[in-house]
Design a binder for these strands. Structure first.
Lengths: 223, 223
DNA sequence: CGTCTTCTTGAATTCCTTCAATACATGTGG
DNA sequence: CCACATGTATTGAAGGAATTCAAGAAGACG
């Protein structure tokens, strides 16, 4: 369900934009490179400019639970900064990503004299919270099978399709899909096959084609 | 994990406080009475003054998933209002609750000329989002057994204890506990017995006494 | 080409759900 | 205050869903 409104450079004053250009920096991360780590103290907020990034927590057994998928325009790390707290999750690039890094002090400065930015942040947080709660209610009650269908639709909604109009424009390992669904890698594999057998989707390595969206939606709603 | 900072009347200007006194109204709800319903359009935000309230969604099979427990000082329904959207969950009193009802227009008015209120809301949303994500990661991966231990600790953290210092100051039906944990009522019953047999807690009807908090914490962390 | 990661499959087991039946509690109207 | 109706709690048994472990195949990558 993560699809937050993109960061609105429009809400920034000219002065802020200038500050940003001076104090902010653009960094590039390759697949698997980490932008920041769960438990560390934040020094900046991050705006994704190009590429794809996953936000995830790691449990004691070393398994990843992905809590958010970011796309260009998304603001990351701002919760730790706002709450003056350690990062509650880690962030890593899913594919080459370029990121605008805004030092903490600058972010607060901008926040202080921009009511528009405050209001934007409130909207953003509201959206994310709604998604988190929806996700939560789903995880608690639905079978893994339904959740997998939901994740397939989520990926489509978040990153869209290739030119063919049906192949997901993001490629994840089975393990990463498992981290999204909240299940074991083996279960993802078996259930992907099961959904394939029912004609809901097709797989080719890490490529996934959605063949029957209404069918997937129905499955995602059920159980 | 819901324990948001209480609504700070201090951040309100004198003018706002006056408006609130004039346009706001206090309503009392008995146990099971609903403050608002999932899917309906909001007309107000709600500040809990006394009592306990659950926020929950209902799935197709009619099972409730509790997404938040509110306590005095908590603001409710503000997300639907902010997002100009239908309520994403319902709210019902767990015990007699008195609630300050603030009409939507008034809330926006207050928000518009109070940066302090904006900043407060940002903090509030940040806190709730962190809790939601933590809850989410837990639900996805942990066994029901661990989640039940977590819920017991959550209830203690949220509503505290009776005078004896160990009995939870909130009484829920087994079904409500199941709605918090995300499981079936029967499973809650069986696992409560199992935790009792291990000396982690004791039950007497709907009263629950926590006997071994470190033990419960250890269990909640694991699996 | 060989190594390392990722993917796949099978089998056993655990955990949890569901259904069904019964006990207990609670509260209401007579 | 009792009798009954309703809602809640409990227990057993059967079945199903998903995890775990183990082992092998396929793919990626230097």
């Amino acid at each position: 369900m993560p699809h937050s409104p993109p960061f609105p450079f429009e809400v920034l004053s000219q002065a802020d934009e200038k500050l940003l250009a001076e104090a902010g920096s653009v960094q590039v991360f390759q697949r698997r490179e980490e932008l920041f780590l769960e438990g560390k103290l934040p020094t900046a907020v991050y705006i994704l400019q190009r590429g794809k990034v996953k936000l995830f927590t790691t449990d004691l057994q070393g398994r990843e639970q992905i809590v958010h998928l970011a796309r260009p325009g998304d603001l990351m790390g701002y919760r730790a900064v706002l709450g003056n707290d350690a990062f509650s999750c880690s962030a890593a690039a899913l594919e080459t990503a370029s990121v605008l890094v805004i030092p903490k002090a600058l972010f607060f400065q901008m926040l202080d004299h921009s009511p528009a930015l405050s209001h934007y942040l409130i909207r953003l947080l509201t959206t994310e919270l709604r998604h988190a709660e929806h996700h939560l209610a789903g995880l608690a009650r639905k079978h893994v099978r339904s959740r997998l269908a939901e994740v397939a639709l989520l990926l489509a909604e978040t990153y869209g399709y290739e030119k063919d109009g049906s192949t997901l424009a993001v490629q994840l390992t089975r393990e990463e899909v498992a981290g999204l669904v909240g299940t074991a890698t083996e279960t993802v594999i078996r259930l992907l096959h099961s959904l394939r057998d029912e004609g809901l989707l097709a797989t080719d390595g890490r490529k996934i084609r959605l063949l029957d969206i209404p069918g997937l939606q129905k499955l995602a709603e059920s159980s």
